[in-house]
Design a binder for these strands. Structure first.
Lengths: 139, 139
DNA sequence: ATAAAGCTTGGAGTTAACTCCAATGTCAAA
DNA sequence: TTTGACATTGGAGTTAACTCCAAGCTTTAT
């Protein structure tokens, strides 16, 4: 079991953030030591990694809480509800992937077009690269 | 040219948001009408679409401003600077794509495992699906 | 000609997600 | 045994990104 400071360090977040998540029902400590210290197990570590990843790709804590509640409240949801929720989130994720693929294409074009020399970057533009990509996509 | 309200409606954002972006140097109106009204052209529309997409995949307005400044300040950056910035952003984008691919896998497993019936969703869990994916990846 | 809808500005208020603080308790090392 | 690092709580403060408001113009419809 990890104490709050150990877990925080492992995850590169602050102890305040962990307490904040507990207060806001995202992740409670696995248990408490006799002295009242929070204790976290390996599953808590994995849940936190899940939360951090989800945040990095633009999900809000509220949405993440929804994702997690599938596990937490599983006895109170029907299979059909879970399936429809998951399908909806899947379509969101697919959209995000498509948008990122678009950025990726733009950035790759930009990197390729950029000679990397000392001269002014007058011909380098994310947006004009993006416009090319848009043009390709819209065909 | 669009007036602010027209552009806002086209993009499903508020006029306040457009004025906020102008105040924070993300996107100024293309020009002003004689009466002082903001006017936006097609390029402004494309830039806003870019901003909205970038936001949806977790970039902050500050980061987006950095991406846009490649265009705006192109005369004041060297090609080498732009290339290195773009390469760095590209690696961020690749990370985000990898994380989303992980979510996608989890959600697809979940959707597949879920029969979609009326019974309790006791065997449905994003996290346990995710753990499977983690296990596959870590091999 | 006047009302309604849309625009302007500056500035105040809100929400999410932290981040910091003060007062206090716990525990290991010197 | 006392110093230092760690933990507790409640609550205040901060930052980003809006969101709303008031007072006052402009334009369109009746």
């Amino acid at each position: 079991m990890y104490r709050i400071g150990e877990l925080a360090q492992k995850l590169s977040v602050s102890t305040d953030t962990l307490r904040y998540y507990e207060k806001h029902q995202l992740l409670a400590a696995t248990s408490r030591a006799d002295n009242g210290y929070r204790l976290y197990n390996e599953e808590a570590l994995r849940i936190m990694q899940f939360i951090i990843r989800a945040k990095a790709v633009g999900f809000s804590l509220k949405e993440i809480s929804g994702l997690l509640s599938i596990k937490i409240d599983k006895a109170s949801h029907s299979c059909a509800e879970v399936k429809s929720f998951a399908e909806q989130k899947l379509s969101q994720v697919n959209n995000k992937i498509a948008e990122l693929a678009c950025f990726k294409g733009s950035l790759e074009l930009l990197v390729a077009a950029c000679c990397g020399g000392e001269e002014e970057a007058t011909h380098c533009s994310i947006l004009s690269a993006l416009e090319n990509v848009d043009a390709i996509i819209s065909k």
